[in-house]
Each structure stands twice: as C-alpha cells, then as structure tokens.
Amino acid sequence: MVDKYVLTEIENLVSENKALFEQLHTRRVFVTGATGLIGSQIVLAFLMANEKYSLEIRITVLVRSLAKAQAIFGDDIERLQVVIGDVRDRLEVKDPIDYVIHGASVTNSLDFVQKPVDTIYTVVDGTRNVLELAKEQTIKGFVFLSSLEVYGSFEGQKDVSENDFGHLNPANARSSYSEGKRLAESLCISYAAQYHLPVKIARLCQTFGPGVDYQDNRVFAQFARSVIEKQDIILHTTGGTERNYCSIKDAIAGILHILLLGQSGEAYNVANENTLISIKDMAELVASLDASAAINVVVDLQDIQKFGYNPEVKLKLLTKKLADLGWKPTVDLPTMFAGVIESMKYSRVKHDEQ
C-alpha cells in the first residue's frame, strides 16, 4: 500500500502540473530506476494523471526486482509494462517509446567508496545502454537524472550556474559517483550531437520528502530518524557544508519541465534556492521540530572517508534556467522535513505491523 503522505504529494503534483501531464496523452514513457525514490513517484504520478484526466499515458518501467516493484505499485503494476533486468545489460522494449526518464543509478554513498567500480559502470554503461535503446526509437524527449556532485568543490561559497565547475579529484574512490555522472552527461551530449537525440540533463540537488525509506542513511533521513526515536542528532563533521535542497514533488515537476520544454543538449539545475543551509544549521532546524525540545545536536568528529561523505563544500545551485521554462518550487525546508518525518513514522508503523 502506498504511503498516504506520498499520495497527497502526488495528488498535488498532478493537479498543479496538469498541462504538462496532458502533453503526454497516449504517449509511452520509459522510466529506469522505477523502484527508486524519485522514479517510483514519477510512475505513481503518471498513473494518477491517467486516472484523474484520462490521459492514457503508457508506462514502461525497468526494474531489477519484480517483487520490489509489486511491493511499491501493488495492483497498479498491472497497468505498467514491466521490463525486468539490469540497466548495465542490453535493453529491449517491445513497444515504441516516445519519452525516456533515465534515473537508474547507485545512490548509497557508502557504495561510492566500497564499490566504486560498480558505481561507475552502473552509471556509465547503464546510460550508454539507455541511449542506445533511445537511438533505435523515434523519441520526442529524453532526460538524464544527474547530480549536483558533478560540480565538485569550490574555494569559499559559490553560487553555481550550469556553466560553473569546481575541483574534483579523480584519484579519490569517492569520486566514482561524481566522475561517473560527469561521463554519463558527456555521453548524453555526445548522443545529442552525433545522433540528434533530444537529450536533456537534470542536475538534482539532494532531494527528499514523503516516501523516504525508514532505514535510508542519507543525512536528512538520519536527522528525521533522530527526531522520531527521540535521540540526539550526532554530527561526525563540523557541519560546515552548505547547499540547497528540493522536495521530491518539486523535483519531479522540474524533471517534467525539462523533459517536455527543455532544449536538447542542455543541462538544468533542479533545486530550491531558498533552502540554502549548512548541515549544522539543518540539524538545529530538525531538532527544533521535536515538540518536547529534548533533542540536542552533538558534534563527534570522525574520519569522513569511512562514512562515504563528500569533502566540505559551500554551494548554491542557481535555477534561473529552469525557472525560465515556467518551473518554480512550492515546498520550503521546514515543510519538507515535517513531511518526511510523518511519512517515516507511518512507514515504521506499517513495517512493525507486518
């Protein structure tokens, strides 16, 4: 059963972006990473748009685990064309595809340092396979879900447009994800240039909201879990990293704007400029959401390499380019955290009941 908080977010997403969904009337969309956090909610949004507006969007999903897909989509899986396989293998889809949303990737930061080879090949080989599939089709749009990590780090605080790039050390195993995304972006642009594929790139900041797994180990989930379990928030760094964030709902709206309205061969930042905050201040913000005021923020410095953390960065993704397509964020940071906390509470209770 889909999290009720997720359903509310998706209902709002579909209602607020009706015109975008209507552009997909009777079209087939191929979604990779369809059981991931963002991919699954994109698929649920298409299903809801079909139900709400009778759009007959045809949805093909690539999944590695049928059981996981069934757990996420329930009876709705019968309304999907399911392709079971690994994105690193050659892909075959029997019906013509109109649009591609390529989101399959390694996302666990520990894997970036413990399984860097797998991380690189999943991103690079996976993207090549999806692009090859698209090349065989007459597609109308393709969006690759990239990451703010392609920007690397800068001296001091930096406002980052799509044309700004900092330092990235390829001799660090942690760079497997960042360098993999960079090369995958280059592949996308190369296919656009050589084969005239309408490929666009969405560079996502860290994105969260209802639907985050209770055991998710990313920093926002750790903070939310501390509130739920009434535990102090423990920082293993000074918390000096500053960046901005985005709700899943707003990120999906951004992805659809890029897919349908973006220019081929272009990259677009997807972030809420108003959410810029340091890790330390974010911890204080989340602690303040606990009504009992019993949660403290404790700094316990550790070797960041063993956690898979990035070096300290201070950057703010600028989103004018995406805003020029008509997109704007709708969810602020406190609301994002309130939503993820309630959703994680709900999923914890459901898990305990099973």
Score class of each variant (00 low, 15 high):
residue 182 R to A: 03
residue 182 R to K: 15
residue 184 A to H: 12
residue 184 A to R: 13
residue 185 E to G: 01
residue 187 L to H: 12
residue 190 S to C: 02
residue 191 Y to T: 01
residue 191 Y to H: 06
residue 191 Y to I: 01
residue 194 Q to S: 11
residue 195 Y to K: 13
residue 197 L to A: 09
residue 200 K to Q: 13
residue 201 I to C: 04
residue 202 A to P: 05
residue 204 L to K: 02
residue 205 C to R: 01
residue 206 Q to V: 13
residue 206 Q to H: 12
residue 208 F to M: 04
residue 209 G to I: 01
residue 209 G to C: 02
residue 211 G to T: 04
residue 211 G to S: 07
residue 212 V to Y: 05
residue 212 V to K: 15
residue 214 Y to M: 05
residue 215 Q to N: 14
residue 215 Q to W: 13
residue 216 D to T: 02
residue 220 F to D: 03
residue 221 A to M: 09
residue 222 Q to V: 13
residue 224 A to L: 05
residue 226 S to L: 05
residue 227 V to P: 03
residue 228 I to M: 06
residue 229 E to C: 03
residue 230 K to G: 00
residue 232 D to W: 11
residue 232 D to M: 05
residue 232 D to S: 08
residue 233 I to F: 09
residue 233 I to V: 07
residue 235 L to T: 11
residue 240 G to V: 00
residue 240 G to R: 14
residue 240 G to L: 11
residue 241 T to S: 15
residue 242 E to W: 11
residue 243 R to P: 00
residue 248 I to P: 04
residue 250 D to H: 10
residue 251 A to F: 11
residue 252 I to E: 06
residue 253 A to D: 04
residue 254 G to W: 10
residue 254 G to A: 06
residue 255 I to L: 11
residue 255 I to G: 03
residue 257 H to K: 10
residue 258 I to M: 09
residue 259 L to S: 01
residue 259 L to F: 12
residue 262 G to N: 10
residue 262 G to E: 09
residue 263 Q to D: 13
residue 266 E to D: 10
residue 267 A to D: 09
residue 268 Y to E: 08
residue 269 N to M: 08
residue 272 N to S: 14
residue 276 L to E: 01
residue 276 L to G: 08
residue 277 I to F: 06
residue 280 K to G: 00
residue 282 M to I: 00
residue 282 M to R: 14
residue 283 A to C: 07
residue 283 A to I: 07
residue 285 L to K: 12
residue 286 V to Q: 05
residue 287 A to K: 05
residue 288 S to N: 08
residue 289 L to W: 03
residue 289 L to A: 03
residue 289 L to K: 06
residue 290 D to S: 07
residue 291 A to F: 03
residue 293 A to M: 08
residue 294 A to I: 00
residue 301 L to M: 13
residue 301 L to T: 12
residue 301 L to Q: 14
residue 302 Q to E: 14
residue 303 D to F: 12
residue 304 I to P: 14
residue 305 Q to E: 14
